[in-house]
Simulated scan of single mutants.
Amino acid sequence: MDAHSRVGPSGSMVLTNARVVTESELFNGTVHIRNGMIADVDRGRSQVPGALDCRASILMPGMVELHTDNLEKHIAPRPGVLWPSIPAVITHDAQIVASGITTVFDAISVGDVVAGSTRLKTLETMVNALQVSKRDRMLRADHFLHLRCEVSHQGALEMFRSLVDQTMLQLVSIMDHSPGQRQFVNLDKYREYYMGKHGISAGEMEEFIRTRQEDSRRYSDRYRKAIAGICRERGIPMASHDDATPEHVDESAGFGMSIAEFPTTLEAAKASHQRGMMVMMGAPNVVRGGSHSGNIAAATLAQEGVLDILSSDYYPASMLDAVFRLARLETNDYDLTRAIATVTAVPARCAGLDDRGSIAAGKRADLVLVSECKQQPVIESVWRAGNRVY
């Protein structure tokens, strides 16, 4: 395929001899694109002059990523180093597109567990850089803002109120990373994670744990209610985070949350499904074969039929790898079509983006062409709104 193929002068393009993945089936076919939209989907090969031969590679929808903190790595590539924000956003965007993601919700942390952290220092910088980069058409993927509210942080509510009018804001998640509950029921895992990530010494760790638990008691319930109330008033979709018990799930559903991010137990994941919430798990969990925090494995939720969405979380390339691994597991009912829906159609619907996420007439031509080499998926091309961006 021509490495520089784009929509032609007439605004049309034909992709043929592709293994087309729709929401319900996979077949050899042809996709007709006109003015950035999918005009038609046919079975079989097209003889239209100029049609691009996909050589029987898989043609799937562009992936929709609801939760990634990947931008942080480009803003602060090393301890004590802050990179210029616009180049950081552009580099992050290039990595996102190269991973087959055409719509991304950049998850920016509002509050943190460590005072004076880089996350706190760069919050407004990252949000402003995203706004400017999108406004000035510097980006290849379609970017939205996802505010991750750390409700155990003293200043979280005030910071959230200062950002809630951002035009890019399309999703809010509410989280509490204090030790002894949710993600970090296991205090040994908590110590391992924060001592490694933030360089906290063993002597300092017990005081750190005590302080974080006190902050949670002081702020979390009050801030969770306040932020959820603001989101309901404004119609902003909400996600829970690290629910571990049916009581957590009942509270989240009561606040009107529609997505259950990273439930830590099978019990919580099943309860979320029963309450009509879509269950999101990390794609790295699938690729690595389990949770780095020692919680429930995403593959276990797939076996139980309660895995709805995969997110790259901290590693963008994990989404595509996870999809193909999920489809190869023999202990669940996720064939390639259903596995691909966890990163396309389902997250698009949850985010209220009805114009994308599937290959069907009338949908936006966000597409990814994928080949396989020894069971490793390899991205050949990516189109956003019919224009080739990778």
Rank of each mutant, 00 (worst) to 15 (best):
A115N: 11
V132C: 06
R384N: 05
V20K: 05
D243W: 12
D366H: 02
N332W: 12
K374I: 04
L71K: 04
A360R: 13
Q170A: 15
L82Y: 14
H198C: 10
I379V: 04
G362Y: 08
A302D: 10
R234T: 11
H177L: 08
A228Y: 09
A56S: 15
C149R: 03
S240F: 12
W383G: 03
S318T: 12
K134N: 12
Y314M: 01
E214R: 11
M277N: 11
I209K: 12
D40F: 09
S99Y: 09
D355W: 09
G50P: 03
D42C: 13
I230P: 00
D335C: 07
L82F: 15
D354W: 13
W383L: 08
A297I: 01
L59Q: 06
D142F: 00
I309F: 08
D250Q: 12
M13D: 05
R224V: 14
D333R: 14
T16D: 05
S201R: 07
M138D: 04
T102A: 01
G36C: 07
F160A: 01
R6W: 07
V382D: 00
H177F: 08
A348V: 07
G276P: 12
A253T: 09
I75S: 00
E192P: 02
H177Q: 07
L15Q: 04
A317I: 13
V368W: 02
G196L: 01
Y194K: 11
M37T: 15
T30P: 07
R148Q: 02
R182Q: 14
A339S: 14
H74T: 00
G80Q: 01
F27S: 11
V81H: 01
R55H: 13
A88C: 10
L369H: 02
G386C: 04
H146W: 05
G229I: 11
F184K: 08
H32C: 11
E380I: 03
M278F: 12
Y219P: 04
G100W: 08
T30W: 04
A107K: 05
V110E: 04
V114S: 03
V7A: 12
M1C: 10
R364M: 11
S178W: 07
R148C: 03
H177R: 08
E214V: 08
H143V: 05
G203S: 06
G203W: 01
Q154F: 12
V172W: 11
T125P: 01
R137P: 00
A39N: 10
E150C: 07
T30N: 05
D308G: 05
L163Y: 00
D69K: 02
I58T: 15
V343F: 06
A253Y: 06
Q183H: 15
R275Y: 01
R45W: 10
L120N: 06
S12L: 06
V114L: 14
A345D: 09
R78P: 03
V114I: 15
A141Q: 02
H92Q: 06
G29E: 07
D335Q: 06
I90P: 00
A98C: 04
D313F: 01
I236M: 08
E158Y: 10
V132Q: 14
V346C: 01
C54Q: 02
A365Q: 03
G229R: 04
G29I: 11
S57Q: 14
Y314R: 01
E330N: 13
L157Y: 15
P284R: 02
Q375H: 13
A51G: 09
R275F: 02
A269E: 13
